[in-house]
Design a protein around this nucleic acid. Structure first.
Length: 326
DNA sequence: CGTCTTTGACCTGCGC
DNA sequence: GCGCAGGTCAAAGACG
């Protein structure tokens, strides 16, 4: 494995979380990797992809995702006190790598190494530096839409580490930083990232009571790649008013076959994750690359990727990852 | 007027 | 203890 690959594919860590990425050979470079996902790259549109199995990105965030199951499916022990990879003080981000492949979409060919990586990390109680703001009300209360008073309560309990919501990171090749995912977000901050010329933006779901946040930053290794990290799960449906009927049609369209590489799907904005057949046994966990497909318009055309063979996936990929339609 | 972005300040945890 | 870096707040401004 060459470092070259890593560099090429983004071995940069997600800074605070140390998300590393693996190269196409499956080798990765991480401190505490739980498992990695490496994808194969080559795939011809002729394979015809099986649209019956996929899950929308939004849905994923929606709550239909069972972290434990996911973990289990991926070869991790779901039950234990570490759902995904949580470890006291040491988030074990699941990483994904390999941007190898991808392929090209008819309308917008993407470079071979353009794909999206997906990683997640759950923090049972990580410390995440700085993440905790004023530590006032336990995330629970303040969050709720409530912007409560900030600088006041320092009711932090000793030894009680703030619990972090599960997080999922996606690397998408795109020119736009903020990818449309069906939800409404409000930017609440932007920070320069160390060692990166690109700033990181912080967004929060505008829906009341929804505490989902997401961070968006561009890879400094490959500026064309946008890293989006979601934290938490939406506890509400997609805003119906968003982008017209996007939300409305979402429920249906997301289950509709989308011939990638042939015609652009007409779904609303969302991503479809596709798992690549390539399995890497890093750290004893199976993996596959997840290719997202933007459902938006031209704006995200570059998110269309070749779809890998689905065959193998069904067995390794957690069911919740796919939406099965009879 | 409501919503969203920008941006400097502030807070917190961590490493040295 | 100090400095650094990440994360968040909230005032101010832009926009429709």
């Amino acid at each position: 494995m060459s470092d070259e690959h890593k560099d090429l594919y983004y071995h940069a860590s997600f800074h605070e979380d140390h998300y590393d990425v693996i190269d196409e050979t499956g080798a990765y470079n991480s401190q505490k990797p739980l498992y990695s996902i490496a994808g194969s790259s080559t795939y011809g549109s002729s394979h015809g992809f099986d649209p019956s199995s996929y899950m929308s990105f939004t849905e994923c965030l929606h709550g239909s995702m069972d972290y434990n199951s996911l973990a289990k499916a991926f070869g991790m022990s779901p039950s234990s006190s570490e759902p995904f990879s949580s470890i006291e003080g040491n988030p074990k981000p699941v990483e994904v790598g390999d941007l190898g492949g991808g392929g090209n979409s008819t309308e917008n060919p993407v470079t071979p190494n353009s794909s999206v990586s997906f990683s997640s990390s759950e923090a049972g109680g990580e410390e995440d530096s700085g993440k905790v703001k004023k530590e006032s009300p336990p995330k629970g209360s303040e969050q709720d839409g409530g912007e409560c008073s900030k600088k006041e309560g320092k009711t932090k309990k000793k030894g009680e580490k703030k619990q972090r919501e599960p997080r999922f990171a996606f690397m998408t090749k795109s020119e736009v930083d903020h990818l449309e995912d069906g939800y409404r977000w409000r930017k609440y901050g932007q920070k320069a990232v160390k060692n990166s010329p690109y700033p990181r933006s912080y967004y929060r779901c505008t829906t009341q009571k929804c505490t989902v946040k997401k961070r968006v930053e561009r890879s400094f290794q490959d500026p064309s790649i946008v890293i989006t990290t979601y934290e938490g799960q939406h506890n509400h449906p997609i805003p119906a008013t968003l982008r017209g009927n996007a939300a409305a049609m979402f429920s249906h369209s997301m289950l509709t076959p989308a011939p990638i590489g042939t015609s652009r799907p007409t779904f609303p904005q969302d991503f479809l994750f596709h798992m690549a057949p390539h399995i890497s046994n890093q750290v004893g966990a199976g993996a596959g690359s997840i290719y997202p497909q933007s459902l938006n318009n031209n704006q995200h055309l570059h998110h269309q990727y070749q779809v890998p063979d689905y065959g193998l996936l069904q067995d390794i990929v957690p069911s919740m990852f796919f939406k099965q339609e009879p």
